[in-house]
Design a protein around this nucleic acid. Sequence first.
DNA 1: GAAAAAATTGACCATATGGTCAGGTTTTCA
DNA 2: TGAAAACCTGACCATATGGTCAATTTTTTC
Lengths: 220, 220
Amino acid sequence: MSGSRGRVGRIRQQHEGTILKAAEHVFARSGFQGATMAEIALRAGMPKSNLHYYFGTKVEVYRAVLAHILELWLAETDRFTPDADPREALSHYIEAKMRLTAERPDASRVFANELLHGAPEIGDYLRGALRALVADKSVVIRGWIAAGRMAAVDPEHLFFSLWALTQTYADFETQVGAVLGRSNLGPADYRRATDHVLNLVLRGCGLMPPAAIEEPPCST
Amino acid sequence: MSGSRGRVGRIRQQHEGTILKAAEHVFARSGFQGATMAEIALRAGMPKSNLHYYFGTKVEVYRAVLAHILELWLAETDRFTPDADPREALSHYIEAKMRLTAERPDASRVFANELLHGAPEIGDYLRGALRALVADKSVVIRGWIAAGRMAAVDPEHLFFSLWALTQTYADFETQVGAVLGRSNLGPADYRRATDHVLNLVLRGCGLMPPAAIEEPPCST
DNA sequence: GAAAAAATTGACCATATGGTCAGGTTTTCA
DNA sequence: TGAAAACCTGACCATATGGTCAATTTTTTC
């Protein structure tokens, strides 16, 4: 019986999930324009008209996929607090981002595609929530720098760098794979990539990695 | 009279240039699927049928644009030689990449879009020329590291990082702009971005930037 | 200056694709 | 159990778009 949103469409709930999953896959590969409702429907295992029953238009599906992704993005934030250890905070953030990239590459790709085309759907999010979040964290980082706890690095640009360094492994997996001589990246590749990014960024911020240059920084 | 390719189509030469320029713009904004021949033609200032006179199909235009871009990409390479100064070589590479990104953002975006969609057209280039180039340079870098001239950084991944760090300013300009509170990036932004990337990477490789900011974290 | 080659163009076509809809089936719930 | 709500689907339509073509004009060349 009801509840917050209880019995409202048991089937709907489930099928919307299936559709979103299928759509993410298709949008990641073909972009918004390239994706077809027919293909999404096929992948979701239902006739096109049924897909249209759940989502009236293609943009609606697309928006839902993006909203779903933004939820993920925003979830894994805070450790950037004035009292935190900079190395700890950065390491954690990088590891989280890399894990997300490895686990949900399609999400990253849909997001990248949206940005690449001028972010027609998520411009508000970028100028709103995201900007505020970065502004907040930047204050903290500037504090760390002023206190001599890390090297002087532009905080805003540091975020751009972190995003770029991590998401490149999903967005441009083809390129990375081609250069490394594989058709796609496996867990070992992601492990190596994470180590590399950690090494580069921590050192770049004047924070030596836990176990210097030789030993893998283990941890998780 | 000829010559290498002399009198062959004076008009053709010129119009193909115009078309390529228009096409780069349109492909950068809409991707391959999203771009329409009509829009390219409009931007090039000629009727669609005339466009088809120069390039039979849309893929042909697209391939030409990509070829044009790869030319640019490959031009600005070498300084990575065994005897070179690592700091010098890296700085030069970063600055060149950033300049290219600032001057030809659309080229970067078309390339990014192609990669994002699995590089159907330039897969051979990636697995061929690019892979070989990176392999070459990686040997040099490993030499530098072995000689203790820079910190131990995975050379292949270093390249991925350099590409990501620089091209992010073109590919995801919308995001960067939104976070910085601008609608698009100006020369000052690019200058700041370049400084940041130089700072982060050089320090990250154990090579202090020329004018040190804090404490030189020694070499290794 | 005329014939040949190159360039130009509007009209037209085939197809793909987003979206609609009327009618049918299943599920829910009093 | 029966009616209302939710769900399903094949057939259909309108439009956008890549591409063709025959006829015409401009440029080159001898």
